[in-house]
């Protein structure tokens, strides 16, 4: 790793004809952290990443690595490792040759090719044509390509798509490891839950516009809490809670009491002399907050 940089998206807009796929988007991604780049399908994640990588020209604004556009990086693959779609391989070329071509173009040692193939678990398939690869294997090859230059910045577009559970676990710990080495890691996904366990920060966009950016913890600030409670005598419990002034709704597995902690519900039941059969705190979850943010923008 030679060169660690921030990712700077500054008021970037991209119009495809009349459609603004990305609209005045600004955010910054810090080194040493994993940042989740989230948004529903068509939100403009891939378009933003492609602008950052110099593949798509922004209509307005600048997307740079610490102020330097991708095309002006002295040694691009050693500075930024990117994995975009899983389909960007010539089906007739082997995985090893695919990486060799890139290594040759960037002056990266050939031994590094075998190293990254081993790292992503493709060593035994290295000399097979990519046309016969499964989606998960292509994802791994894409990741090998991103890691080839041992870059200080990683830009990964939906890297978890198509991976098996073991692969998902592996990539999550890989992302953590890369960030703990001080690298800048940006990972896109359309599901918060997919990356929730591995990200420090989130940047959420919808319809090409920023809806939230900050730490993962900043998302849970919008959480609402409720309690799921049940008793053998459910109607007596309902009456007691209503009498105490709580908002109660009936659910299949019990009663849901909004906006309280479990302790208060337990005390209310105890004071009314009603034995409980279950008592659970429920948080609406980050995914709900995420969906709420994203939908609020519709």
């Amino acid at each position: 790793m030679t060169d660690v940089r921030t990712i700077d998206i500054e008021a970037v807009t991209k119009r495809f004809g009349p459609v603004a796929a990305v609209n005045a988007l600004s955010f910054q991604v810090q080194p040493g952290r994993v940042t989740g780049f989230l948004g529903p399908n068509g939100a403009g994640k891939t378009t933003t990443l492609r602008m950052l990588l110099g593949l798509v020209r922004p209509s307005q604004g600048r997307a740079t690595f610490g102020g330097v556009p991708y095309s002006e990086l002295v040694s691009p693959l050693r500075t930024v490792g990117a994995a975009l779609e899983a389909a960007s391989f010539h089906p007739g070329r082997t995985a090893r040759n695919h990486l060799r071509v890139a290594a040759t173009a960037s002056g990266i040692a050939r031994s590094r090719v075998d190293e990254v193939l081993g790292l992503v678990g493709l060593a035994e398939f290295a000399d097979r044509r990519v046309g016969g690869y499964s989606l998960g294997m292509r994802q791994r090859l894409g990741l090998a390509f991103a890691l080839l230059g041992d870059p200080g910045v990683l830009v990964l577009d939906e890297p978890i798509n198509g991976l098996d559970p073991e692969g998902i676990k592996w990539i999550r710990s890989l992302l953590r490891a890369l960030a703990s080495e001080g690298r800048t890691v940006l990972v896109s996904s359309h599901l918060l839950s997919e990356v929730q366990q591995s990200v420090d920060d989130v940047v959420i966009i919808a319809r090409g516009e920023l809806v939230h950016s900050g730490t993962l913890a900043s998302l849970s600030a919008g959480d609402s809490v409720s309690v799921l409670v049940d008793a053998p005598d459910r109607s007596a419990l309902g009456d007691a809670l209503a009498a105490a002034g709580y908002a109660v709704t009936r659910a299949r597995s019990g009663l849901i009491v909004a906006g309280v902690e479990a302790e208060e519900v337990g005390r209310t039941a105890f004071e009314a002399g009603i034995p409980l059969s279950s008592l659970q705190r429920q948080s609406s979850g980050l995914e709900d907050t995420f969906l709420h943010l994203v939908e609020g923008n519709r």
């Binding site: 991708y70 095309s71 691009p76 990117a82 779609e85 960007s88 890139a102 173009a105 960037s106």
Partner: peptide, 9 residues
């Protein structure tokens, strides 16, 4: 895509 990532010119 990989071609221009390796050689962005």
């Amino acid at each position: 895509t990989p071609t221009l990532l390796a050689t962005p010119r």
